[in-house]
Write a protein that binds this DNA or RNA. Structure first.
Lengths: 143, 143
DNA sequence: TATTGTTATACTCTATAACTATA
DNA sequence: TATAGTTATAGAGTATAACAATA
């Protein structure tokens, strides 16, 4: 119906920035493990063992930050590290049985509010729209 | 055409959580003033002077956190505080000329990447979709 | 007692800098 | 030299706790 002007783009950016701040605080308040911890476990589960730098690139954080994340996860017994047989510099990070269980627990807990909010606050049509929008946001975040 | 199953909801929640983490890191890396600082300035600009508790509720943070944010903004000369004439407990927070200028500067800087990314990475149709999705996310974040 | 606001303190998450070890 | 990883440190952003002043 209407055309998008440049100021619409700015308004969307502004509101998106605001709403992202809110969502992050809400997600943190649910204080399961940190966002990145959950993301790493999920990735290891889907894609198998990986190096620290690989994980850092995949999650869009610095290698030093990922090293800390991995150290935390190891401290909690959720992952284990072993040297890469083919490259003495690399450490292969892989999930433990405890980690798998924690991931399952986290998946259930996610239903705790974000997934629940999506299914309860949005109509089926809106859920589809959100699903498409998430892909757009991913594209933007990786640009 | 297809129906959404509960697992779709979980998948959307999972991917949304991941993409939000990425966006927040990107936004932080652009290090204008903090997300909440910009949000407070924008609100004061749109809605005029407000109390600290009002702002805390509007932005979804604790009053203590907002007091710190307001103190930071005042330290930078972007807002000023004066006692509410009608209620000795309240402090009215209002923008300074410097704050208004900083907000304008921030609005221009937003074009720096989030707004630019939206206008360059997305088609007009996708921008419309994202605009609608932001409203859905707001509803979820406030639920 | 309830509300508004502040200060002090701690925690979470990520970044930068400086380093070791292997390639 | 370049790459994988680590440790140490700092910073941003928000929370909780304890408090003062006013209603």
């Amino acid at each position: 119906m209407s055309t998008r002007t440049p100021s619409d783009t700015g308004r969307i950016a502004s509101e998106l920035r605001n709403v992202i701040g809110r969502l992050v605080r809400r997600l943190r308040a649910e204080h399961r493990f940190p966002l990145t911890h959950g993301a790493v476990l999920g990735r290891l589960d889907r894609e198998g063992p990986a190096g620290v730098s690989d994980l850092a690139v995949r999650e869009g954080v610095k290698p030093q930050s990922m090293a800390q994340t991995v150290a935390d996860l190891e401290g909690e017994g959720l992952v284990s590290r072993r040297p890469d047989p083919s490259d003495g510099r690399r450490m292969l990070v892989e999930m433990t049985a405890t980690g798998t269980a924690a991931l399952e627990e986290d998946r259930r807990h996610r239903e705790g509010w974000l997934a629940t909010a999506i299914s309860e606050q949005l109509t089926a049509e809106e859920q589809r729209l959100l699903g498409r929008a998430v892909e757009l946001l991913r594209r933007i975040s990786e640009s």
